[in-house]
């Protein structure tokens, strides 16, 4: 059976991880390549690198990092952040990224999703959606969740699926950083709206939160950052518990 996936996410600025990572005694915990290798060995199913560099120089560094990760890591990885054209994606895939994640650029120009899936195939096009529940409506936000749009989460998800997205990475801004659990109500509604895989993001704090997002939220994968980076949850232990609760995982 196809397993549920556990996905650590690393924020990268100028080629270095941003948040401190101290889950294991590493010589250089700021080096994303070292970390990625470590996560692969510890049982992560795939990785997401989010580039938050604001400068052109920072972006170039990202290419070098992607190349090094591809060289050294034997599990799939997605690269997101600041991707806005077919050329950007071509460059990243050439460096060895397996998938790319687009967010604001897809909202600004939805045809980009069609262009990418036609040229590279749906399998490598992840559309990331940041949404916030306001007055019972899930409103899509852009630019790292700072600017509200007119879009509704479910309509937008349906649209990007039709345009050729291969996967949706949904971050609930209400849950992100709370460590109070994933937005399972919205996730299950999303799962009933589209027929492509969904990665749940935002709110992971305990092992039970992962159980719930797979069982109640019907998520295909769960992404988290700090609980993994700070060793609060060990991936292997997490997966053992998931299996105990009859959730299919790779062990």
């Amino acid at each position: 059976m196809l397993t549920k996936r556990i996905v650590p996410c690393l924020d990268i600025k100028n080629g270095r991880t941003v948040k401190g990572v101290n889950f294991v005694d590493l010589r250089d915990a700021g080096d994303p390549v070292v970390l990625a290798k470590q996560y692969a060995e510890l049982g992560a199913d795939e990785l997401v690198f989010l580039d938050i560099s604001a400068t052109l120089e920072g972006r170039k560094t990202m290419h070098d990092m992607v190349l090094k990760v591809a060289e050294q890591v034997n599990i799939p990885f997605t690269v997101g952040g600041g991707i806005s054209s077919v050329e950007d994606v071509d460059d990243l895939l050439h460096c060895g990224a397996d998938k790319v994640s687009i967010n604001s650029s897809a909202i600004k120009r939805p045809e980009l999703v069609n262009e990418l899936s036609n040229k590279f195939g749906s399998q490598c096009v992840v559309v990331a959606i940041d949404a916030k529940q306001i007055d019972n409506k899930w409103i899509v936000h852009l630019a790292g969740g700072t600017i509200p749009t007119e879009l509704n989460l479910f309509d937008w998800a349906k649209e990007v699926e039709q345009r050729g997205a291969g996967e949706i990475l949904f971050t609930s801004m209400n849950n992100d950083g709370t460590k109070a659990g994933f937005a399972n109500d919205a996730l299950v509604k999303l799962a009933n709206t589209v027929n492509i895989p969904i990665i749940a993001s935002g709110g992971a704090g305990t092992v039970q939160h992962f159980v719930d997002t797979f069982k109640i939220g019907k998520a295909d994968a769960a992404l988290a950052a700090s609980v993994f980076h700070f060793g609060e949850i060990e991936i292997l232990e997490l997966k053992k518990e998931l299996r105990k609760q009859n959730i299919e995982v790779r062990l």
Partner: peptide, 9 residues
């Protein structure tokens, strides 16, 4: 769900 994406036996 199409595509199948992830780890399978």
């Amino acid at each position: 769900k199409v595509p199948q994406m992830g780890w399978n036996t």
